[in-house]
Design a protein around this nucleic acid. Structure first.
Length: 280
DNA sequence: CGCGAGACCTGATAGC
DNA sequence: TGCTATCAGGTCTCGC
């Protein structure tokens, strides 16, 4: 579920709530998402440390401490980080429990367990994130950069926008939204896009992500929440009809029926009238 | 190297 | 009601 806006919302919440909190006790309840890192090592690396800053890189969340040790979190498809009181009922699929000095608890919860959760040194973090492409809001990410990276590529544009090595942070929902905004068919060969298309796409990426962040992300079914368990209220325009109704899903721009297709096992929604497969 | 299919999991929902 | 099939916002790995 979570893409850049949902991770950024969490980052902002953590920054507001737990900066300078000390990790009094660390409980690792599951190691499914630790890529082999043992519970004891995570505990040793983090217990007693104080949270010094909260960062984000693409869809990765970085909880840094005063100890040159960072908790790396990825929300995968179903991951949440929740701030709770000890009296609050423990959630199913709890992976990590951080007891803060003031009694509050940070809980990492992930039913499907596709996320990631490790305590890493700065150099380990750097190695882990080395392959990520530029941040969508960074100076390096321009229409010209996109054109350069997509030149000669025959894969569908949608798949390359979701490739974190090209740009970090887009997933299935926001790529569909951006392609709809830019009027580009998701299956078009990436290298065939005209520079006018790429300028529209570049702008759409920044606009939709920015707007989504301002609305604290997208929550379709109540699963994706902020630090306090609250849903975001951003609604991608291309999905509004589809996620809210049954039967016909009209395009919000032209009224044509939206269609679905599968690209590399991911569902894609698009408007066959607004998003043409190729230039005439 | 580029590309696409499958695997990894649990839970919600649609259809019978 | 209860069973089964399908799908879900991500990433990795493996063949071709």
């Amino acid at each position: 579920m979570p893409e850049l806006p949902e991770v950024e919302t969490l980052r902002q919440d953590l920054e507001a709530e737990v900066l300078r909190a000390r990790l009094r006790r660390v409980e690792v309840l599951q190691t499914r998402m630790t890529r082999g890192q043992g519970a004891g090592e995570i505990k040793r690396r983090l217990e007693g440390a104080t949270i010094s800053s909260i960062g984000r890189r693409g869809k990765y969340l970085l909880v840094r401490t005063d100890r040159e040790m960072t908790l790396l979190l990825h929300r995968g498809m179903s991951g949440n980080v929740l701030l709770r009181a000890p009296v609050d009922e423990p959630e199913p699929h709890l992976h990590l429990l951080l007891h803060l000095d003031d009694g509050r608890q940070l809980r990492v919860v992930d039913p499907r367990g596709f996320g990631e959760m490790r305590a890493l040194s700065p150099s380990e973090i750097e190695a882990r994130l080395a392959a990520l492409g530029p941040e969508p809001f960074g100076a390096q990410f321009s229409a010209a950069y996109l054109q350069d990276r997509l030149r000669g590529r025959r894969a569908p544009i949608k798949l390359l926008l979701m490739d974190q090595r090209i740009v970090a942070g887009l997933g299935n929902i926001y790529t569909d939204e951006c392609l709809w905004l830019a009027g580009v068919h998701p299956a078009r060969a990436a290298g065939s896009l005209a520079s006018a298309d790429l300028m529209l796409l570049h702008q759409a990426i920044r606009c939709s992500l920015q707007e989504a962040i301002e609305h604290r992300g997208t929550t379709f079914d109540g699963a994706m929440t902020d630090l306090h368990g609250q849903p975001g209220d951003y609604r991608p325009k291309v999905f509004v009809a589809q996620r809210n109704h049954h039967g016909a899903f009209p395009c919000a721009r032209c009224g044509a029926s939206l269609e679905r297709l599968r690209l590399s096992n991911r569902g894609s929604t698009f408007c066959p009238a607004c998003q043409r497969a190729a230039e005439e």
